[in-house]
Write a protein that binds this DNA or RNA. Structure first.
Length: 263
DNA sequence: AATCGCTTCAACCGCTAAGTT
DNA sequence: CAACTTAGCGGTTGAAGCGAT
């Protein structure tokens, strides 16, 4: 598989976006809809690569984004979904309307990981830590911020939180999220159904409903092409069904976005 | 008030999957 | 069928913000 250069690096801006750039991008997408990110910067008069524009739009400028703190319910949902799907941030984001994969990923790394460690749960395996949390955290994490996590784990692992109760997979607000590590759910699942219903849009474009009605316009008309199945690697229908049944157990079954055939 | 260390998060990078030629 | 092209994903980075001292 060939790999093309992302963009002409010579004449592209990098770093933080300015207000003007944001305005240009929003104006362009409002007028023309999403799609064809490669040519968008030029058409919109932006000195950015398409990738950067796409990211900026998806993570920051999209009008349907829900900004602000995550709720306790969202926390638990993320934890549960992560237990099922692993680091499939885009799939997790697909279950949290108004949240982006990047946002969830950041939130996971900065808040939830620590929260789980404090509860005595390994954030990677979602199982109770069998050794001192900080040690396990260090082993589990490949991040360059291991030391920071360890520090955090130590500091937040007070006698109260590190005692037996902390190992429960329990929400702070007593949400009724099912327990994963002892609930009989197969934690080794690594694939999941598509997060969005298939859409007649270019390449792997997301379903319109995640990108707000007014903006999407007719992105699909710009470059009609067959559907592209969700990127999740080689998901077989039986695997999808398996995932769906797990999501069902969590009360998260995909409904229209589900491709397992169960609806 | 100044400095330092930690946390957060927007943005970048490298890579893969899948459509197109 | 192979090479090319493009969108999208996940990991990582670094600047900015913030609290502690």
């Amino acid at each position: 598989m060939g790999r093309s250069p992302c963009c002409e690096k010579a004449h592209t801006n990098k770093g933080a976006w300015t207000k003007e750039e944001d305005q240009r991008l929003v104006a362009y997408i409002n007028a023309h809809g999403e799609g064809c990110w490669r040519s968008l910067p030029k058409a919109a008069g932006l000195q950015r690569c398409g990738k950067s524009c796409r990211l900026r739009w998806i993570n920051y400028l999209r009008p349907d984004l829900k900004r602000g703190n995550f709720t306790g319910e969202e926390d638990e949902l993320i934890i549960n979904l992560h237990g099922l799907l692993g680091n499939k941030w885009s799939m997790i984001a697909g279950r949290l309307p108004g949240r982006t994969d990047n946002e969830i990923k950041n939130y996971w790394n900065t808040h939830i990981k620590r929260k789980l460690l404090a509860r005595g749960i390994d954030p990677k395996t979602h199982r109770p830590l069998s050794v001192f949390p900080a040690t396990a955290a260090a082993a589990a994490s490949s991040s360059h911020r291991q030391d920071q996590l360890m520090t955090a784990a130590r500091s937040s692992c007070s006698p109260e939180t590190s005692s037996g109760a902390a190992c429960c997979y329990r929400s702070d607000d007593e949400a009724s999220a099912p327990t994963l590590h002892d609930g009989g759910i197969d934690l080794n699942l690594s694939i999941s159904p598509p997060r969005q219903p298939p859409s007649p849009s270019p390449m792997r474009q997301q379903a319109p409903d995640t990108t707000s009605g007014e903006v999407v316009a007719d992105a699909s008309s710009e470059k009609p092409s067959p559907n592209r199945e969700q990127q999740s690697t080689g998901t077989s229908s039986s695997e999808r069904k398996k995932i769906c049944s797990c999501l069902n157990l969590l009360g998260l079954h995909g409904g229209e976005g589900c491709t397992c055939g169960d609806g």
